[in-house]
Design a protein around this nucleic acid. Sequence first.
DNA 1: TCATCATGCCGAT
DNA 2: TCGGCCTGATGAT
Length: 306
Amino acid sequence: MPEGHTVHRIARQLGLDLVGHRLAVSSPQGRFAAGAQRLDGQVLVGSRAVGKQLFLEFESGDVLRVHLGLYGAWDFFGRLTPLTPGVVARGSMGAPRLRRAVRMGEGEREVGTGPDASSPFPPEPVGQVRVRLASRETVADLRGPSACEVLDPSEAAAAVARLGPDPASPTDGARDVMIDRLTSRSVAVGQLLMDQSVVAGIGNIYRAELLFRARLDPHTPGRRVPAELAGALWDDWAVLLAEGIRAGMIVTRDLSSEDHARALTDPTLSTWVYHRTGLPCLVCGTPVVVEAMAGRNLYWCPTCQQ
DNA sequence: TCATCATGCCGAT
DNA sequence: TCGGCCTGATGAT
């Protein structure tokens, strides 16, 4: 799945191009027909990401809650404002294999179009589109989400309250809340970082990378993590998340601009340990190992992380 | 062409 | 701890 940075980018794209517009809401696939009918014709008034969840608020107070799960993605068409100056997201945002970014040439306009500007607008839905949000100029199609439901305001508030703090959607005392929840349990810190009620938005890649950057053994019980180290994990997560949102990809190493571009096609360039099983640790040379932790692949360096 | 895998999470056991 | 769900890419056949 898209980790937190991707969902924040989706929230921003929808905020730039669909918030403030009266939308046609439909479910071409049919599996969200009732929810779509409830939202159809309303003005979208807010777009917010908390962790990996997206909350879209409509003028009636109804909130569309979306979780992309492992496979979900949004496809954008029509008029799109670049999230990063000069870079227009084309195609999908969500499942990473679909991520595409096209750098616009000199002199091109700030506003780009979808993947095929010559096709009719709005485009015919392709595949299983659970929800289509359409303004006169922009279409957003949601495919393959694990959660997609309409909530009333109190239900939406409860859904947000179940999540831990998110550095990109800050709340009062967020850092202390994360420190407290991380250091009060005996569960392994490698599991706690993936627990969305401890801290929101971290997935399997950021989990492995944060632990390596902190030189922390993933098996360390949360209780044994000093508060200063838990705070440092929060601070580093805030940095990596902000950079991920800006760049539109997960980068946890300092890369030259050439390597940054090459990392689009060679993911092993952008991480310290994730997906580097058997390759020498970039710091000490020890082969990176992979093991299952709570049913997910955990990558780490047994020498650096002690 | 097929089997496997993936940045997730839930509920049953 | 496991299977189930959702979709597309990848590497093996």
